[in-house]
């Protein structure tokens, strides 16, 4: 092993100090986001048509029987809030994985058609095949993976270029959204409420049965992705540099894409393609926490904050109750326009 001349000890200490200082901001942001999540969760459990005090909520969480609250908090608000948390994590991590891998903020699964594919398949399973529960999830996942593979193959020409993949993905997303809209036209009135969620995403009527598959997916794919964090960070140097540093580039890419698609598809099957959460979480997290360290934890937390808070806003801020996807959609659209304008200005790659 070639070691260079021994460095100046002062320089080593300065480097270590600089590294710690860069990660400090990220740590603070993570703690603050955590507190916001905790606060939003508390509000989501206490507030509704009936207000329940923190003491009553805690009693319900502890499994004690509280008149009224046990049903409202335990059966309605809690699964809804937990589903918001879990889907927020899935969309946040799944989105930032794609954006990092393809070096493009527009390459998030809800822009390039993976969410649309999962959504269309779920709508098809419910409306046409009259399925429910796990079978719907299965359809969504197979379609998500299918769309991911299709885009990858269509955009492959001597390697995959982010921009080409994004444009092909946007086209495929438009086609799949049309399929979903077509299916909704066919839906009987009584299924419309259920099926509408596949257009924008909604947490209405969330139950523990909805939560379970996504929670398992998050528990399996989340750590799998985290285990690839170092390889993913090195892939950002380009394939050749990453390989030269000992990364198995193809394997890393395959595992991360598969895990990210899994997260997105399971979350979409449970709550619909909650608009733009996957797209927004990563860039917001990086803006807040800085570019140092793995983006997974901050992105997951931003995803949770977005879904939880947007759902509260949708439920209580207006006279009419809006599904969560309408609120996140209203947040995400301006950012999308901003990104496209910026691309136009710089004239560069996306």
């Amino acid at each position: 092993m070639t070691a260079l001349r021994a460095p100046n000890p002062g320089a080593v200490a300065d480097l270590a100090a600089g590294r710690r200082a860069r990660l400090r901001r990220r740590r603070v942001v993570i703690v603050v986001l955590f507190l916001i999540v905790a606060g939003a969760l508390a509000v989501a459990l206490m507030v509704g048509q009936t207000f329940y005090s923190p003491a009553e909520v805690i009693d319900v969480l502890a499994g004690r029987d509280v008149a009224g609250a046990s049903f409202t908090v335990g059966r309605l608000r809690l699964p809804r809030a937990v589903l918001a948390v879990v889907t927020g994590v899935c969309f946040g991590i799944g989105g930032v994985t794609f954006q990092t891998l393809l070096r493009n903020p527009l390459a998030s699964p809800d822009i390039i058609g993976i969410s649309s594919g999962a959504s269309a398949a779920a709508a098809f399973a419910i409306i046409v095949l009259d399925l429910s529960g796990a079978q719907v999830s299965l359809f969504a996942i197979v379609a998500g993976i299918g769309v991911a593979m299709t885009i990858y193959l269509l955009s492959f020409r001597d390697g995959v270029v982010g921009t080409r993949l994004v444009l092909i993905g946007i086209g495929i997303a438009a086609m799949l959204d049309a399929v979903t809209a077509f299916l909704l036209e066919k839906a009987p009135q009584w299924q419309l409420q259920e099926a509408m969620r596949w257009l924008t995403g909604s947490l209405n009527g969330a139950s523990w049965a909805d939560v379970a598959p996504v929670a398992v997916a998050a528990a399996v794919f989340g750590p799998l992705l985290a285990s690839q964090a170092r390889g993913l960070a090195l892939l950002r140097l380009g394939d050749d540099a990453a390989s030269a540093l000992g990364v198995r580039t193809e394997r890393t890419r395959l595992v991360t894409i598969a895990a990210a698609v899994g997260l997105i598809a399971f979350a979409t099957a449970a709550a619909g393609p909650i608009a733009f959460v996957a797209f927004l979480s990563g860039p917001i997290a990086v803006r807040l926490a800085g570019p140092h360290g793995s983006p997974f934890a901050p992105s997951a937390l931003v995803g949770v904050v977005l879904v939880l808070v947007a759902d509260l806003v949708g439920q209580f801020a207006f006279d009419t109750r809006y599904p969560v996807g309408v609120i996140t959609g209203a947040l995400g659209a301006p950012y999308l326009v901003y990104l496209i304008i910026r691309v136009n200005r710089t004239g560069g790659s996306l």
Binding site: L234, G238, A244, L245, P291
Partner: peptide, 27 residues
């Protein structure tokens, strides 16, 4: 080791962190 012709520097990465990426094979 190989230094390719056009490696890509991730947005916002510091010099110390970029050079630190070279430690990967030893970690």
């Amino acid at each position: 080791g190989l230094l390719p012709q056009s490696p890509i520097a991730p947005d916002g990465i510091t010099v110390a962190d970029l050079v630190g990426r070279g430690r990967n094979p030893h970690r």
